[in-house]
Design a protein around this nucleic acid. Structure first.
Lengths: 130, 130
DNA sequence: TATTTGACTTTGAGTTACTCTAAGGTCTTA
DNA sequence: TAAGACCTTAGAGTAACTCAAAGTCAAATA
């Protein structure tokens, strides 16, 4: 059983964001104690990680909410949930490609600047080198 | 020489966003024709791609603006620009790790659902499986 | 020639997803 | 009993788009 602060530390999601996610219905299973304080179980932490994963690959909050509702609805929605996960994975793979391209560009620029500094030469006006 | 529409197609950045970026000073080198229409050169396209790359790895607009100003300032800022690129690259590498972790989770879930469908079994209430 | 089409312009409002502040309740420790 | 560390909520503020409205201009079509 964890407080929101502990969940924040475990998941690396800020308390603010966790409360915001709670408010918009991302944690329908989290109980409260007699003082109205949220008590997260281990299973809730896993749930937070899933939400973090979906947000992390750019799924918007409305779609995440929809997925959560499908989970609650039960077995009849398994196929639909499978499709969502599959599409999300495909999206994430595209992001991976994009990120690798960006890393290549950053690597090129890092080396360019490093060489400029080492040889004490002047920068040439060419956007590729900026 | 390209119109904003062509730049949008070449860079996969919406015209809206390109105009927004222009407004906040991301393209200080783009000229206008006699009708006040922006004319992008090949070098400007490269520049757009660099901005896209920096935004893509989550650098905020204020920091991008600062980097652009350092570029304009000239050779005295080379070391500072090198540091920015280096830190950005490190940030992107962390994102790559994170994305790979997320892909692992999505892959696990995809397989889980696939198996549920194949064996026509029931979902077990466990957040790892949602 | 007139008008319609389509690309461009600007300003400014709307949206998403946080992010933060203020005001306040409860519990433990000095 | 008061300070400190937790927690709560409502609501304001922010970043980065995203879109709509209103308008200019030039080429293509009736």
């Amino acid at each position: 059983m964890y407080t929101i602060k502990e969940v924040s530390e475990k998941t690396e999601i800020s308390e603010h964001t966790l409360r915001f996610w709670a408010k918009i219905g991302f944690f329908p299973f989290v109980k409260r104690d007699k003082n109205n304080i949220r008590i997260f179980e281990d299973a809730d932490i896993e749930w937070v990680k899933i939400v973090k994963c979906l947000r992390g690959v750019g799924i918007d909050n409305k779609s995440i909410k929809k997925y959560i509702e499908l989970c609650i609805k039960g077995d009849s929605t398994i196929k639909e949930r499978y499709d969502i996960i599959k599409r999300t994975k495909e999206k994430a793979l595209l992001q991976l490609q994009e990120l690798n391209k960006q890393l290549e560009l950053l690597d090129y620029k890092e080396k360019y600047y490093k060489n400029l500094i080492k040889t004490n030469s002047k920068d040439i006006w060419n956007p590729m080198n900026k």
